[in-house]
Computed example of a mutant assay.
Amino acid sequence: MTKNSIKKFLLPFAICLLVAMGLYPDSTLNTELYSTEGLELDYNISAELAMADFSKESKSNIFSPHLGKSFEGFKEALAFKESRGNYFTVNTLGYLGKYQFGSETLKLIGIYNPNQFLYNPELQEKAFIANAARNKWILRKDIKRFDGKFIAGVKVTESGILAAAHLAGPGSVKKFLRSYGGNNVADAYGSTLKYYMKKFSGYDTSIIKPNKKAKARL
């Protein structure tokens, strides 16, 4: 095969390769389909607008759970007030855990080893549910009687009653309600039943079922 023959043979392949690489104009291509004519190509934006968009996008990616007035919201709000949500804390009076339980209350719901309780978050959550169920049974008549009414300027709700019972026990809550706010006891740190009843008002605690014999079991 002569040199000229070789050139003629290889030339089509070389052109195809150049077209594929974008280095050779292909007359078969319709370049009008890829024209930028008439398009706005000036995308300059102000630095302030760019930062605003970036800030907006960044905020939208931040995980921020909204528990609202759900039962989980009730639990976490009460826990934050009691201990800042710390499972492993003990206050100056010896109250334990995320929800600050006393040893006598723990015995009522079947827990006799405070040290084991303190280092077991699952048991603490079970204890909160059991204690709330027990308090709801003790206060069931008062909840029915006073729910929705105003006492000492505070609207009484089931969640407020249960929060106050967690603070000072169901017996103290009964006295508060039946004295129409006259018997407003406080804990050692100054938190009153009235304060708890107002602060934790309006949460959905319907998931808690009254249970006289509620126990915390894993």
Rank of each mutant, 00 (worst) to 15 (best):
T2W: 00
K7N: 12
K8A: 13
P12D: 06
M21V: 12
Y24S: 02
P25H: 05
S27H: 05
Y34A: 04
Y34V: 06
E37A: 15
G38D: 13
E40K: 15
E40G: 14
D42N: 15
D42E: 13
I45N: 00
A50Q: 13
M51V: 10
M51R: 07
A52I: 03
D53S: 04
F54T: 05
S58G: 09
S58W: 12
I62T: 11
I62S: 06
P65I: 11
S70V: 07
G73F: 02
F74D: 00
K75C: 08
K75L: 06
L78T: 14
T89F: 11
L96A: 14
L96V: 15
Y99P: 01
Q100A: 15
S103M: 09
T105D: 03
K107R: 00
G110V: 15
I111M: 04
N120R: 06
L123S: 05
Q124H: 06
E125P: 02
K126A: 07
I129T: 09
K141C: 01
I143D: 01
F146S: 06
A152S: 14
V156I: 14
V156T: 04
T157Q: 01
E158I: 11
I161V: 12
L162F: 08
A165R: 08
G169K: 04
V173C: 08
G182R: 13
A188I: 04
T192D: 09
L193I: 15
L193N: 10
K199F: 08
F200Q: 07
S201G: 04
S201Y: 04
Y203C: 03
I208S: 02
L218N: 01
L218I: 07
